[in-house]
Amino acid sequence: MKCPKICFVNQKGGVGKTTSTITVADELARRGKRTLVVDFDPQGQCAVALNIPPQPGVFKLLISGSAPADCINETGRPNLAMITGDRSTATAQIVLAAENRPFDTIRQALKPLENQFDYILFDTAPSVGGIQERAVWAANLIVIPVATDYLAVDSLGKTLDMLTALSKQGWQGKLAGILPTMYDHVTNESRKAYSYLEKNYPETLFTPIRRATILRDCIADGLTIWQKAAPGPVADDYRALVDQLMKLSRS
């Protein structure tokens, strides 16, 4: 697969989409893969998490018609670049919907970058409204992070419905898997949620990422887990995820 595009998507907020995106992206970059993160979330928190200022990169890419290379921000980390998002991403979403732009808008916009990068990762907003569907449409692989709690598991069905609908319309991508996050083996709720996922989605379940305060500390410090707490149990969980994603992206 040439320049696999991996989209982290879930309509529920707070499930670990942004954390997973930047952690996976940084590990890929550390393994020598030229990686681009595109932040389709109007909160622009991918940039915040990597300690760079949120800028209207996505708006410039999709609406202003800027050249993709001009929308890229350096992150100060080797092999890792980002197209940042901010509040203007919400405006971009409204414009995309109002102008009824085609589903492959994002795919076409990112095409010139495929030779420059080995991996492109999308972080999406916890909402439905046009930009998320177009990001999924542009992606080859979909990862659905699901916090191991009742509401997050409940929202999983809706995300899968969206993927089913897109699939019926000719979407060419594939589901890489469901990623249980914030797994805490001590709590009953977490265990029940995980066993529910295991029972209902056995074919598509990644190794769970455990709940850890260190992940929130990393975000607060503008660092990734690889800079702050590797080697460690959470870093091992994410390393396993990156291994699996790299295997899938070779298929």
């Binding site: 899968l160 589901l175 898997g177 056995p202 298929s251």
Partner: peptide, 24 residues
């Protein structure tokens, strides 16, 4: 919280959505 009340889908995702498989 009752997990049994959750509806279980009659179809697994791999029956509805194409699922990526590692290269054999």
């Amino acid at each position: 919280m009752d997990w049994n009340r959750r509806p279980t889908s009659p179809l697994a995702p791999h029956e509805l959505i194409p699922v990526a498989q590692p290269k054999k």
